[in-house]
Simulated scan of single mutants.
Amino acid sequence: MWWTHLPGIAATLVIMLATLVPTGAMAICQIVADAPYRPNPKKVALAPNEVQIRYIGHSTFELETPAGIRIATDYNDSFKPAIPPNVATMNGAHSTHYTLNPDPSIEHVLMGWNLEGGPIDHDILVGDVRIRNIQTNIRGWDGTSRALGNSIFVFEVADLCIAHLGHLHQRLTDEDLLRLGQIDVVFAAIDNSSTLRHESLMQVLDEIGASLVIPMHFHFFGSLDAFTSRASADGYKVQMATDPILIVKRETLPTERVVYVMQPSGGRGKL
Rank of each mutant, 00 (worst) to 15 (best):
T96W: 07
I31K: 13
G117C: 01
S151R: 06
G269N: 07
S223M: 13
D206H: 13
I15N: 15
D74F: 02
M1V: 14
I245A: 05
W113T: 04
P81I: 05
G222Y: 13
I69T: 05
E50K: 07
T228L: 03
I162V: 01
A93D: 15
I15K: 15
M16T: 04
H198T: 15
P41W: 10
A241I: 05
H219G: 07
P119K: 10
R146F: 11
S95V: 00
F155S: 00
V204Y: 08
A158W: 03
P264H: 02
P104M: 13
P104Q: 13
I15H: 15
Y75P: 04
V109E: 08
M90D: 07
D234T: 12
I190T: 05
C161M: 01
D74P: 01
R197Q: 13
I183W: 02
Y236E: 00
R38P: 08
H5R: 09
D184H: 15
V258K: 03
Q263N: 12
P36C: 06
L115Y: 09
Y98H: 04
D174C: 03
L46Q: 05
A25H: 11
A45M: 15
R38C: 03
N133Y: 06
D142E: 15
S59V: 14
A93Y: 13
N40F: 02
W141K: 10
H5I: 12
I56G: 01
M16A: 07
G57L: 07
G118M: 07
E107N: 13
L165S: 09
L6K: 02
H198F: 08
T136M: 07
G149E: 09
L246Y: 05
F220G: 05
D225E: 15
S211P: 08
P36L: 02
T99M: 01
T144G: 15
G117L: 06
I120D: 06
L100K: 11
Q170M: 13
F218M: 14
F153Y: 12
P41C: 03
Y55S: 06
S193F: 14
D174A: 08
I83E: 13
S211Y: 09
A147I: 12
M262S: 06
L17W: 07
T242K: 13
H94A: 14
A10Q: 14
I31R: 13
P7V: 08
H5D: 15
E156G: 00
D184C: 00
A233H: 14
A35D: 01
L46H: 02
P254K: 08
D142Y: 05
V213N: 06
E207K: 04
P215R: 01
F155P: 05
A231G: 02
T60E: 02
S145V: 11
A233I: 03
L177H: 00
S105D: 08
W3K: 01
V126M: 01
P244A: 12
A226D: 09
I53A: 04
F227C: 06
N86A: 11
S200W: 12
Y98R: 05
